[in-house]
Design a protein around this nucleic acid. Sequence first.
DNA 1: TTGTACGCGTTATCAT
DNA 2: ATGATAACGCGTACAA
Lengths: 349, 349
Amino acid sequence: MNAKPTPAKKAPSTRPDGVVTLEQVAELAGVSPSTVSRILNGTAAVSQAKKDAVQAAIQELGFRPNPVARGLAGGRTLSVGVVTQIISSPFYGEALLGIERELERAGYVPLFVSGNWHEDDEREAIETLLSRRVDGVIVLAGRIADAELTKVSDSLPVVVVGRQLSGPQLFSFSFDNRAGARLATQHLIEQGHRRIAFIAGDLMHDDAVERQNGYLDAHAAAGIPVDQNLIVQSDYTEAGGMLSVTRLLERDAHFTALFASNDQMAIGACLGLHRRNLRVPDDVSLVGFDDLIMARYSMPPLTTVRQSVYEIGVEAATAMLEMLRGGKPRAQLPEPELVVRESTRRMQR
Amino acid sequence: MNAKPTPAKKAPSTRPDGVVTLEQVAELAGVSPSTVSRILNGTAAVSQAKKDAVQAAIQELGFRPNPVARGLAGGRTLSVGVVTQIISSPFYGEALLGIERELERAGYVPLFVSGNWHEDDEREAIETLLSRRVDGVIVLAGRIADAELTKVSDSLPVVVVGRQLSGPQLFSFSFDNRAGARLATQHLIEQGHRRIAFIAGDLMHDDAVERQNGYLDAHAAAGIPVDQNLIVQSDYTEAGGMLSVTRLLERDAHFTALFASNDQMAIGACLGLHRRNLRVPDDVSLVGFDDLIMARYSMPPLTTVRQSVYEIGVEAATAMLEMLRGGKPRAQLPEPELVVRESTRRMQR
DNA sequence: TTGTACGCGTTATCAT
DNA sequence: ATGATAACGCGTACAA
């Protein structure tokens, strides 16, 4: 596909295909290729005269450096891998957007691969990224063992969102899920609710555990005993939320409020309640978590805990760029915040 | 970053870093690098004995070919670029998932870049992809001129979703938006509705135009005149749908049904109606388009036109793979289908 | 400050 | 069928 039929010795002045190489730029500018490279990368000081000549040549030829060649030669691909769980999820979607936007500003490109909530897939995803020689890896939650991530960080900067890990090339940060869940639960308690059902996420994940802890915290602080019958575990999906309502009702666990630990489950739960002729918020107050766009447009608009997923994506990317630059990243995440909409109301008696 | 301090002449038996190269595999298997390459790519016939030896060596060393080097040498990167509009959109999210899954099966990796509904961004996105030497480009809708896409297809296979284009290396297919919209409108007409409002998408895009045409078609077929006052143009977002309701109401355009040309706008419209104390479906029947997951969980569950966005993604990827293989792709898209849920009802009088 | 020469890991061409 | 060898486009240690 390459290697032209006629192995011309030396004459890259113009090529049959439209590809413009650094070498051509050098030739046109009357300098050596290395000089062009230096100017491109700011690797060393170059006289202004040559700088101008090269810039002019680049313009004239419309030269664009080839990242593939750069990757081979320099060991950098200007790409960072992102391990997400399901690219189609509204939650991850927003995070990915933040990552993409932020990376772009620095000339980096994200490589998204899905872990599908499956440890093996995740491992495979990371393998793919490594073999693609990404310059760094951002991991969003996930099932893979901490130790494995740490090991990956031996050879690459790694940013992990939603865990507590650290190392020379490993940076992680979490949203304060516990505080957020506490906020949500407190709100319901303040509204007079005493029997508050809780739909947990997959407790394999820290954030799900933390949200549950926040729920428990608030009860403890208010001196309200927790009825285990009011807690069901689910999977952060709409279908899961809906199913959870059924399970709760089958248990005959009476409740006047429901805290679903993410918006998707809350939406699903809302439909589930509706099917049983329970109205939100008249019969049951409902709170979600995440403040996805859907929360604003659900019926009724959902009270939820605001966590700017987009912002989290931006922060992750920023941290990665900082590590790539050789610096120490720090994450500045906004505090959790309760957004009161119309799915909750003071308990009627 | 590379070029070791000691430019050892020839001894790649083991390297300081964990990187395993094709050369090492060759050495261990007692064959030449070319032979290993041939086995990897099936480029030429190789004796079974050597095949086995090489496979064994690959296993033992845990060798993974370097796509970057492959890209430089072979001109293929085993990656295909995908121009999407907003990666975070629930609509595009599903399509991307389909693309990813399908490409993965063939060892390809998608490179997602956002066009942000902006012609310049889109052009830039394509530039990025080209410079990254992707093997092909999939374009989802978008603003960029047909001519530009055609030009891109001179050097690369291109698959375009949502337009009618063709060329030697250019393949496009569309969902039958017009038929789908006709279906939706017919449904409302059959329910006795005569004043059906319509929220169009951005008419810069074919699919939006087609959906509007379907709406008009159905009216024509039923001999119902169309009141231009019942049509507003919007932007496929929830916020846009909500705003459209306001505009419709301000016009004093009385209507008993509303067809929003995508689910997101329908959801927004639903909230907008609610704000004005109009109930769905009691006061206004509502139909969406796309059948995103949110349609199933909205309140009330939304009647909509099913178009499997995931499936579209899969089809696009399949077509791309076929072109990459040198074949002629064909798209087999399912017919539009109306999914009747609970947001529509026979008009009461 | 600048140029030369080599290497990055693989594929493809040309002999054998 | 198999092995040398030369690219692919760029970065960089080294020499100048």
